Simulated scan of single mutants.
Amino acid sequence: MTSAALPEELAAIRDDFLSLEKPERLQLLLEFSQQLPELPARYADHPDLLERVVECQSPVFLFVEVDEKRIVHVFMTAPKESPTTRGFASILAQGLAGLTVEQVLAVPSDFPFELGLTEAVSPLRLRGMVGMLGRIQRQVKDKAA
């Protein structure tokens, strides 16, 4: 699948990263890490509802809702001490917010590699983001069925 399938918000995030020099891309990732939305109380008070993303070295948890209009809502947590991982979680939480089931499922699994971070971030961390996306898409599939 090509990046042409990217929803507008994810494409804009990708383009923001690619418009920067490589050292500045890490700074943008750090900015995203500071913008990860807080969990709503219904999940903050019930961490047992969240799924652990085992592909990440850091403890990352997520939960997906699909509403009656087939709009996807993504909720994620990642520790503040893990800014790279938290940045990836924030990119996905913000970039997938408000998309339809079909749009989320159409995001290519290699999207994390399109951000131009392969030289700045370890392959293990990028695979963690791929794992986050895969788990989000699986939950969307399950909840939309």
Rank of each mutant, 00 (worst) to 15 (best):
M1G: 06
S3G: 07
P7D: 08
E8G: 04
A11Y: 03
A11S: 12
A12F: 14
R14N: 07
F17T: 10
L18Y: 10
R25H: 13
R25M: 13
L29Q: 13
L30W: 10
F32S: 09
S33H: 07
Q35G: 09
Q35M: 10
P37Y: 12
D45S: 03
H46T: 07
P47K: 05
P47A: 04
D48K: 02
D48L: 02
L49N: 12
V54F: 01
C56I: 01
F63Y: 07
F63H: 15
E65P: 10
E65D: 15
V66R: 11
D67Y: 03
E68V: 04
K69Q: 05
R70K: 09
I71L: 05
V72D: 06
F75K: 02
T77W: 03
A78G: 06
A78L: 07
P79L: 04
P79T: 00
K80D: 05
K80A: 08
K80T: 02
S82E: 05
T84K: 06
T84M: 05
T85G: 00
T85R: 06
G87R: 09
F88M: 15
A89W: 11
A89K: 10
S90Y: 02
I91H: 15
I91E: 14
T100L: 01
V101S: 04
E102W: 11
V104F: 09
V104W: 08
L105W: 06
S109E: 01
S109L: 07
F111S: 06
L115V: 11
G116P: 01
G116F: 09
G116K: 00
L117G: 11
T118Q: 15
S122Y: 15
P123N: 15
R125G: 03
G128H: 14
G131A: 02
M132N: 06
M132V: 13
G134M: 00
I136E: 08
R138S: 06
A144W: 05
A145Y: 02
